[in-house]
């Protein structure tokens, strides 16, 4: 991302944003609600084009180009008339691929075995989110974008899902760009954290997170973790 600016009807939402995600890296963007985080993903996903600036992937300009990333939206966005399995196969259908066996394996890993033929309305919010996750993990693009993937979950399910995500990510390191307003979540999961300011969103600061991988759940109670949390919190608050 190079100097990305985007306005809606004269309302500047993003201003001069520049950052990058390395291959196999887990980068998280933290910012207040309404700061334009989802908008950022809509730009990367090609739903809108930036007013100025360039989005590049592997050196190639991809402003307004669709289908280049694999995306998990803020709400699960599952098709209600498709079963869990068919929803997961959707991203492959769009790209003209089929991977039913692989999908079944992932469903099992996500603890959704037995729900392959269930409809989304029969699942809890957390389960729907997991299906939405698998759907984007299954699609072939190298960059995965997660828009507040855990925000609708309770604290317990959230931790469980985070560990699940980490275990899958550590298996086949793809690049992940995540957006959240939850500091602990960002710290626990990421290699790097980018802090955004509110309206219009600008990059305030970037942190590299040194915790070793694979991450242990116990680190979230360590003093070092709390120190990091304080730093980022202060940065967000602007003090």
């Amino acid at each position: 991302m190079e100097n990305i600016t985007k306005s809606f009807e004269g309302n500047k939402v993003l201003e001069e944003l520049s950052f990058h995600v390395n291959e196999g890296e887990f980068v998280t963007i933290v910012g207040p609600s309404g700061s334009g985080k989802s908008t950022l993903f809509h730009l990367i996903g090609g739903l809108y084009t930036p007013d100025s600036g360039d989005i590049r992937m592997d050196g190639e300009r991809m402003n307004g180009q669709r289908g280049a990333i694999s995306y998990t939206p803020q709400s699960p966005s599952l098709l209600p008339w498709r079963t869990v399995l068919d929803n997961i196969l959707l991203s492959g259908e769009i790209n003209g691929e089929k991977y039913e066996l692989e999908a079944l394996r992932m469903i099992e890993r996500a603890g959704l075995k037995g729900y392959e033929q269930a409809y989304p309305s029969e699942l809890s919010g957390g389960m729907q989110q997991r299906v939405s996750f698998i759907r984007s993990l299954m699609s072939p693009q190298s960059l995965i974008c997660l828009d507040e993937p855990f925000s609708s979950l309770d604290e317990f399910t959230r931790m469980e899902m985070q560990n699940w995500l980490l275990s899958i990510w550590e298996e086949n390191k793809r690049s992940i760009l995540m957006v959240t307003h939850h500091i602990e979540e960002a710290l626990y999961l990421s290699d790097r954290i980018i802090v955004l300011s509110g309206k219009p969103a600008k990059i305030k600061k970037e942190f590299s997170i040194p915790f070793p991988r694979p991450r242990q759940e116990s680190i979230i109670l360590s003093d070092e973790f709390l120190q990091w949390k304080r730093n980022i919190y202060n940065e967000l608050r602007g003090t």
């Binding site: 739903l47 669709r66 939206p73 991203s91 769009i94």
Partner: peptide, 16 residues
């Protein structure tokens, strides 16, 4: 809208 947004970002054609 969220469904069509998702489909667009996933690179689906108008027909799809």
């Amino acid at each position: 809208a969220e469904l069509t947004h998702y489909m667009k970002m996933a690179g689906a054609s108008k027909k799809q």
